[in-house]
Amino acid sequence: MNWDNLAFVVFPYISLTTFTVGHAYRYVADPFHWNSKSSEILEKDRLKYASVLFHYGIVFTFLGHFAGLLVPQSFLTSLSITPAIHMRIALVSGMLFGLLALVGAGLLLWRRLSQPRVFRHSSANDLATLGLVALVIALGTYNVFFAHCDVLDTVAPWIRSILLLSPHPGLIATVPLTYKLHIVAALALLGFSPFSRLIHIWSVPVPYLFRSPVVFRQRRAR
């Protein structure tokens, strides 16, 4: 077994398995700690810019990855989005939102380390999570600015091959090292996320938009 097989066949499945099983396990076994762990009450001024920049940056980056990597190019071409246009959209939005997320993550890390109130109540898990997030974003932003490669014919089909359970690690054998590092770091983050504060992503309160304002609850027979 070579390193590519380990990193791009074995590791992705380990990561995806811990991701799914981990979330299910945590939701059932530990509902009491399923929340956003906000520290806004302890420090608000630095959070104001850091958190907003980071979250808007990362949300749009995530949506971009989702649309760009999982949707086959043949489908986009039928919508008259040629590979060239696709790449341009991906690079420009990646630069913009990647930079927002990177600056935000950097500021969040600085805030967490420099503010005694926040630092004092940061667990090792919190620091590792934020550090890993910052690393993934830094590598991704580096790639989008400095290390262009033909993602559409390499990384994208490889990811789809993983999800379709017929992995082709050969597809990304030739991409630059920083792409490979980005992918491995992101997979590590994915696998770790169920055990971190990142679980709050799954609690995006969409039902709130459609709910009646005042909630009554009745005791019912159990």
């Binding site: 709130y208 304002p213 909630v215 609850r217």
Partner: peptide, 15 residues
């Protein structure tokens, strides 16, 4: 507060 809660965690007891 109940109307502000995005998670629907706050509630008024019916009884």
């Amino acid at each position: 507060c109940v109307a502000s809660c995005p998670s629907g965690a706050l509630y008024k007891r019916d009884e």
